[in-house]
Design a protein around this nucleic acid. Structure first.
Length: 306
DNA sequence: GGATGTTTAAATCCTA
DNA sequence: TAGGATTTAAACATCC
């Protein structure tokens, strides 16, 4: 069974759904958001199968981006040239996949359903922080080299890792270099320090967001921190959507480990050189199971929780 | 005009 | 077997 490395599947169709492929692409990017063209590029770069019939699968991929609530659109800064918006993963889509299998989600991610869940309330602070961080990145045109500008100096060890996060995908014991991204997120959780950046970038939008008498209807936990709920929902307008980290739970923890085995080889070939040098990333000793095996193989699951 | 984004519909696959 | 998830196709709108 071929491992999911670059060109691994040659002309065979990879056992990943478009949602999975898109999520991989987004999470492979340090900013955790990519324009459509970059998502295309990521997929074609790794899976030769998708270098053909591009019109077909790209249409499907666009359909998935629009149709699935797990993807949120982040508009470009007004003075930032370029076509299309950035796409990011919804903060709370982390437990979509079961047992680390990219093949099929256990349930469709719906925002309203998600909001009814208690864990959202528990994680709203970090959600808001990540929302603001990514929005600010989009608004300011900030990319990887400038990420440090958002490090507010409060560094704390992070216990959460997004299941699609590159650090989860690549290595079980991965630690973010410098703990920048996550420490930044956590530091922002306390007081949303990107307020100024957002208000500068989108004064009209942000003022609307924080205005208590805003016509934007908000309900549930999002009201607490003035999130433009509509932007997080399917069919939402292009208000600055805000992706956020998922609160860790048993499912995502297991998923994270599971992803490691599935995709470490796959993403270790990433041209973005995100791969940490974890000795545990070497999966050359064993071939990953087929997706269906992944889904049901108890041996793998036991490995995943180690 | 091409890329991007939205929406609808139908077929197929998979799981409970 | 029903219902949900995924894939594919297509039409249409918008933006650069």
């Amino acid at each position: 069974m071929p491992r999911p490395g670059r060109n691994t599947y040659s002309d065979q169709k990879p056992p990943y759904s478009y949602i999975s492929l898109t999520a991989m692409a987004i999470q492979s990017c340090p900013e955790k958001m990519l324009p459509l063209s970059e998502i295309y590029k990521f997929i074609m770069d790794r899976f030769p199968y998708y270098r053909e019939n591009t019109q077909r699968w790209q249409n499907s991929l666009r359909h998935n981006l629009s149709f699935n609530d797990c993807f949120i659109k982040i508009p470009r800064r007004p003075d930032q040239p370029g076509k299309g918006s950035f796409w990011a993963l919804h903060p709370s889509c982390g437990d979509m996949f079961e047992n680390g299998s990219f093949l099929r989600r256990r349930k469709r991610f719906k925002v309203m359903m998600m909001m009814a869940q208690e864990h959202l309330a528990q994680s709203k602070q970090s959600d808001a922080a990540h929302y603001l961080r990514l929005s600010a990145l989009a608004a300011t045109g900030t990319h990887l080299p400038q990420m440090s500008s958002y490090n507010l100096g409060v560094s704390q060890p992070s216990t959460f890792k997004h299941p699609f996060a590159i650090e989860n995908i690549i290595a079980r014991e991965y630690k973010v270099p410098g703990s920048l991204a996550f420490s930044t997120m956590q530091s922002m959780s306390a007081g949303y320090p990107l307020h100024n950046q957002l208000t500068t970038a989108w004064p009209h939008l942000y003022n609307t967001m924080v205005d208590p008498v805003s016509p934007i209807s908000m309900s549930g936990d999002y009201v607490a921190y003035r999130m433009p709920l509509k932007s997080l929902c399917h069919g939402g307008q292009t208000l600055p959507a805000i992706p956020v980290p998922i609160k860790p739970n048993p499912t995502t923890v297991g998923l994270s480990a599971g992803l490691t085995r599935h995709t470490s080889a796959f993403l270790s070939n990433s041209p973005q050189s995100l791969s940490p040098t974890s000795p545990q990333t070497d999966t050359s000793q064993s071939s990953p199971p087929t997706p269906r095996e992944t889904h049901t193989n108890p041996t793998l699951q036991s490995v995943a929780v180690h």
